[in-house]
Design a binder for these strands. Structure first.
Lengths: 144, 144
DNA sequence: TTTGCTGCAAATGTTTTGCAATATC
DNA sequence: GATATTGCAAAACATTTGCAGCAAA
């Protein structure tokens, strides 16, 4: 099965229209799958295919895709939101952010699930999401 | 020992001048110790004591205090930074954020330290800080 | 044909900055 | 008195919104 068509289908189901702009944005997202793209990043990419496209459309599409859980918003604390494809294996992963060069490593995590359970009970809080970030200095930047 | 004088001393050591504005801001921070104040919040408080004070001064002072580790910046993802006093007991605590009413609960955490160790080794990343946030619906908002 | 979508420009809201006046050390 | 700090206004920046025209269904 094709990932792109799968996503198109998902828009269809939610009664959203499948415009050329949205298609271009979806393809760009699928291409740079490992990147943590900001709206501006994506705008740059997408404009090459269709210079007419507006930045507002990119923002609106990203918002929409996050709404229907195609994308996940991530915030590295650098003043702009970034987006990544929500992986079908609902496995949480988190980020190691180098405060010198801005590089981002990912790591898997299962460990947090039990903590989440405990906190949920103790505080009578219905937890919907969690976010874990480590800040530090990457291997390369330690040398310099 | 007085916490306020301790902080004044700390500014002194770093060769920063002890202006009336900075004193007022420090006192306001010490007063509302449990709150997670944004720059604008603090500006509102501080203006009552000295209506002359400028918002830019508040921003500059908060930045300065975060720089010398008196304050910790926190980001609840609501589009503004917040600040809290970095507690002397270097105990990490984290936040439960209600996505409906914005309420914030705190919880202690030791559990993450071992995870931090493991990740540090595995990725050869020198970890300086971590940040854990849970998003969900608080007890009160679940009822409504 | 209807309704949702787009591009543009203007508005928003937070934070930063330039600068001349001022206050601390 | 030298230099850091202030207040103000303007700038910067990411993001959102109003709206008239356009396009997907």
């Amino acid at each position: 099965m094709d990932r792109f068509q799968d996503l198109c289908e998902r828009l269809h189901q939610k009664e959203y229209k499948l415009t050329p702009q949205r298609k271009i944005i979806l393809r760009a997202l699928l291409n740079g799958d490992d990147a943590h793209l900001s709206a501006e990043d994506l705008y740059g990419i997408v404009k090459q295919q269709n210079p007419e496209i507006g930045l507002a459309t990119v923002y609106r599409t990203l918002e929409l895709l996050a709404e229907i859980d195609v994308l996940q918003k991530i915030d590295f604390g650098d003043g702009r939101l970034r987006y990544e494809l929500a992986s079908e294996e609902a496995h949480h992963h988190h980020h190691l952010i180098c405060t010198r060069c801005g590089k981002v490593l990912e790591f898997e995590d299962d460990l947090l699930d039990s903590l989440e359970q405990a906190i949920q009970c103790r505080n009578q809080f219905r937890i919907l999401d969690h976010q874990l970030k480590f800040f530090g200095v990457c291997k390369e930047c330690q040398i310099e």
